[in-house]
Design a protein around this nucleic acid. Structure first.
Lengths: 175, 175
DNA sequence: CTCGTATGATACATATCTGTCTCATTAAAG
DNA sequence: CTTTAATGAGACAGATATGTATCATACGAG
């Protein structure tokens, strides 16, 4: 029940952040009153979805990092783990949350990504002259693009992470 | 007057697509009634902003393409011309328009970009094995990232296009 | 200066969304 | 089978945004 509502909210609010709760309830196959029983106010629902999205990406990345040897392998594992969660990204990007906890976690995630960039530089995978935030933004962008292309059916899910990693490190130019 | 309202709408609705027309009018320094005189309904305003954004990007790219020798030079000029229009991108991305004309123009722009990718492949700038839409999506992403970093003050505007082009073609990896 | 037009402020009716409440029904636990 | 809790449907009031209408004022053209 709770889960069905949260899934529906990711889908509906991800496409249109201004959608009504009636739409979310309908998508979840649930009465509007029941939605309010689980999430008294709209903000409660939004906060719960944000928290759930972040929990899932954190868990996915944590599992991916487990006994990964190099930073490059870590990056590839993270891409493989996170690209399928692209709809979560879409949802988070579509909102501008003012919640303090949410903002703090977002900052922490960004800092973790920047730390990964540092490691990649230390291991000579990423060029040292690449700006830190530029690199982090590019990783994010590759995740976004890969998910979009997979969702559109133009790219096989199995190929997505490798293509993203290759593009990120070597670009699209002809050798 | 009209222009001031459209500028305000790009700013306000770009940040928050659900913002009220009162906010747009206030940002424009205009009475709410005057806004309705120029744009009878909300949809009229939104459609006008979309059309204006597309006109500006089309004009910018058309000027950039003027007597550009190679496809690579065309790409660089387009990046230089379009990155400063990032707020227009932000606005367009924040909306999901159902207007037929708007959708048709969007498809046309996308096809133009894909055609540029084809030219880049013919000139051996982009590797032939790079998927067409993947490449186009990456060009879009570089524009987005570059504008974001410039807007955040982390990147000099003069460096943005070159960095974007370099990242697009050669990636972030160490040579 | 005078007239006409555009603007801002305000009031108003309408529509939509939100959150609460009630009630009948259903499903599960005892 | 009985009881209890959860659900769906619907009614309801309040809040907010929208679109229209009115009126006084300021600004510019003639």
């Amino acid at each position: 029940m709770r889960e069905a509502i949260l899934d529906a909210a990711i889908d509906v609010l991800g496409r249109n952040p201004g959608a009504s709760l009636a739409e979310v309830a309908a998508r979840a196959g649930v009465g509007r009153a029941s939605l309010h029983r689980h999430f008294p106010a709209r903000d409660d629902l939004v906060a719960a979805v944000i928290r759930r999205c972040m929990d899932e990406t954190d868990a996915a990345t944590a599992a991916a990092v487990q006994d990964a040897g190099s930073a490059r392998e870590t990056l590839l594992r993270v891409l493989k783990a996170v690209i399928p969660l692209g709809d979560r990204y879409h949802f988070l990007a579509s909102l501008s949350s003012t919640d303090a906890e949410v903002r703090a976690r977002y900052e922490a995630d960004l800092e973790w990504l920047a730390g990964l960039v540092d490691s990649l530089k230390k291991e000579s995978v990423i060029a040292p002259e690449a700006p830190r935030f530029w690199a982090a933004a590019n990783i994010d962008a590759q995740i976004w693009i890969a998910w979009t292309e997979v969702a559109a059916g133009r790219l096989a899910a199995a190929d997505a992470a490798d293509l993203a990693l290759h593009t990120l490190l070597e670009g699209l130019g002809k050798r």
